[in-house]
Write a protein that binds this DNA or RNA. Structure first.
Lengths: 241, 241
DNA sequence: GCCACGGTTCGGCGCCCGCCGAACCGTCCC
DNA sequence: GGGACGGTTCGGCGGGCGCCGAACCGTGGC
């Protein structure tokens, strides 16, 4: 029974919320949805390797818990993360989970290397911005060139803002809202921060629109196109592996 | 069996890590440790309302998972959160859990009011900085007075830095390290940000040292002393309820 | 030396939860 | 209208896990 009141008032909600991500199936679903797109229920079921009915239950649970939102169209049920803050939470938690937990790690040492070499580790989207070595490299380059200052938290410098506008990255677009202009997001493959927030989103959109990157297959992985590699080298001095 | 490999490589660690907080007992332990102090195992057991053996198991699990660190002294086992970033993660997650999860909420409406009136909601420590209405009030006041800028992420302004030094808050103390100078931390009672990072820590230390606040009992709750109320009003125009 | 006490280990109990298969419902296409 | 298909509901199974009590271990005090 143990119906005695919990000593901390918020322990119950915290546990219930954390429980949403405490299952491998639900965790895999949330990670898949980090690409920011809306997936159908059966896509997710197939992707994480469970039968449709199981996925249906877990998806309902995630929606009820507020992590996911759903949109029904005809006989399809589209699912996506509830918002950018939710995505940041999941990504941050995943990064934390990968950096800590030194216990009986089920990672056979060279799995790490194979992950590092994968296309996703090289360049991918993280919700609506760029991640992987590409994302981290861009973040480093922008800090090195003074576009973004890293003194006391991240900030876009005034000359940096002009420089960004000059190459076609507009920070005053419709996406503004109350989102922070630039935010740091911990990269779970590189374990170092890349850029999120309005700037991260605008950069990613620009890279897509300008043809610098294009998606590989249906996942989050990206390929840097030859013109993209040229532009990144010319503008940021970036050389990718 | 279902031994098929998970589609997402990091789903397993994420689930395991989230699972650490997915239990009410473990969650309550972590929330209690948010005060930044080291507790003994039996203190925690009594506080969260489980028997010593149960607490021992859960504590070992939290330590193995990297959320807590332990320090053994004689026949005592002291436990604290692994670090400020861990504390931020727990606090952020708790705030998120309280804001989302609109489901069958077990909160009987006026519980919220009773929480609001509690001493903890008025003023408390959050790991090593100030929280509650006092914490967010200070944050608002510092932003309003230009000590902290909130344009593109939080930052301490140059005049703000001088002003802080003038009242005895030193930001270049030994605590610097690689911590951000000022960071936003979501307050789970107010659901609005208060100040963390080096500034938050220094402010809290100064408030204690100057006798502005003093702990109530053994918890995280704080009482604002008469001289403290005077100083906060004089320096920041802050009037507390 | 003895005893008190904090902490741990172990066995066992009971519940919860994630999984599946089967049946069912609604939508879309032909 | 009929059939294909995405999605849901339900029953049942199995495993994992959180809890406790009891026994045990090591430290510290007397």
């Amino acid at each position: 029974m143990s119906a005695q009141p919990p000593a901390q008032p918020s322990a119950q909600p915290l546990a219930r919320f954390a429980g949403l991500l405490a299952d491998p199936t639900r965790a895999a679903i949330c990670l898949a949805l980090l690409d920011g797109r809306a997936w159908t229920a059966s896509e997710l079921a197939h992707h994480v390797g469970v039968v449709a009915s199981t996925a249906s239950e877990q998806l309902s649970r995630l929606v009820a818990g507020g992590l996911l939102v759903e949109e029904r169209q005809g006989r399809h049920r589209y699912l996506r993360l509830a918002g950018p803050d939710t995505a940041a939470l999941v990504e941050g938690l995943a990064a934390f989970a990968n950096t800590s937990a030194p216990g009986p790690a089920p990672a056979p040492r060279n799995l790490r290397e194979s992950v590092r070499r994968s296309a996703e580790a090289r360049a991918r989207t993280c919700y609506d911005h760029l991640a992987g070595r590409l994302g981290v490299g861009i973040a480093d380059a922008l800090v090195a060139r003074g576009v973004v200052a890293d003194d006391t938290g991240l900030a876009v410098t005034p000359p940096g803002r002009a420089w960004l506008a000059g190459i076609g990255v507009d920070l005053d677009g419709p996406r503004r809202g109350s989102r922070p202009l630039v935010r740091s997001c911990l990269d779970w493959t590189e374990r170092r921060p890349h850029l999120a927030g309005v700037l991260g989103s605008a950069l990613c959109a620009h890279a897509r629109d300008a043809g610098w990157v294009e998606p590989i297959g249906t996942g989050r992985a990206l390929r840097v196109t030859p013109p993209g590699a040229d532009a990144l080298h010319r503008l940021l001095g970036l050389t990718l592996d």
